[in-house]
């Protein structure tokens, strides 16, 4: 556990020692703010909640989170530092955990920095702050799932651009699986159980469950297990790819 934390600290400092952290945070905040007001119609809606804000998170994450995760392993493999890291007394799973945790905490920091919108909605009306908190938590969980997938994909290649594009593509599939368009495609030929299963793994479905009501245990378990499974696969890929 100590090693996870040591690696996590080092990774967090790596984000902040490059422009990546600042670019990411600025772009995330600017996009999150502008889509809420201009596309989501936050003010026009006249409702004291942050639905207009959270609705766009899955789409922002779709390309921002792979950008955060793409360097995690691809960069180590490209520069050869993976050999330095993996010959220190560290288990691969600890390295995988530490790196993921750092990126996840970083995403959390970016999310926390959107607090002015929460102040705004409290200033304008009287929102259900418990619901907002649950939605923030759900958003962070979803970010973690996107990240775990991106980290996993990053371990398969030395090329960060490939890692980014592939991660975004895989995340897109997870996002879309709940949409009516995808559902109707499967419904035409697949058994009902399968169609329901596809809907269940959708990020959108699970995320909106979390933003719309009290914390739904099923959605929480879903996101956490997706993160867990991705990290296990990530560990296996790192082990497998060491010699290449």
């Amino acid at each position: 556990m100590r090693n996870v934390w040591v690696i996590c600290k080092r990774e967090l400092s790596a984000y902040f020692s490059s422009p990546l952290a600042y670019v990411f945070i600025v772009i995330f905040l600017a996009l999150a703010g502008s889509v809420t007001f201009y596309v989501g119609g936050f003010l026009e809606g006249g409702r004291a909640d942050l639905q207009a804000f959270f609705n766009f998170h899955p789409w922002l994450y779709l390309f921002l989170i792979p950008a955060l995760g793409m360097r995690l392993w691809a960069e180590e493999r490209k520069s050869g530092t993976i050999e330095f890291l993996m010959t220190l007394p560290v288990r691969t799973s600890e390295a995988v955990g530490g790196k993921f945790l750092a990126a996840w905490l970083f995403a959390g920091i970016a999310l926390v920095l959107t607090f002015p919108i929460w102040i705004t909605v409290n200033y304008l009306g009287d929102p259900d702050n418990g619901l907002i908190l649950a939605a923030y938590f759900g958003s962070w969980l979803m970010a973690g799932s996107f990240l775990a997938i991106s980290a996993c994909v990053s371990a398969t290649t030395k090329n960060q651009v490939i890692a980014f594009v592939l991660s975004a593509a895989v995340c897109f599939m997870f996002l879309m699986s709940g949409l009516e368009m995808v559902q109707s495609f499967f419904r035409s030929w697949a058994p009902e159980l399968f169609v329901r299963a596809v809907a269940q793994i959708s990020f959108l479905t699970n995320f909106f469950d979390l933003t719309e009501g009290v914390i739904d245990t099923r959605a929480v378990v879903y996101f956490l297990s997706l993160i867990g499974v991705s990290l296990v696969i990530n560990t296996a890929i790192v082990e497998m790819k060491k010699g290449q």
């Binding site: 400092s13 050869g80 530092t81 050999e83």
Partner: peptide
Amino acid sequence: QRRLGYLPEGAPAYGDLTPLGLMRFAAGLR
């Protein structure tokens, strides 16, 4: 690995760290 000192081929190290930072990181993992 606890008992071994290893210098990989090409001496790869995290470029963003300082020598002090790198040694602290390695010490931390040890």
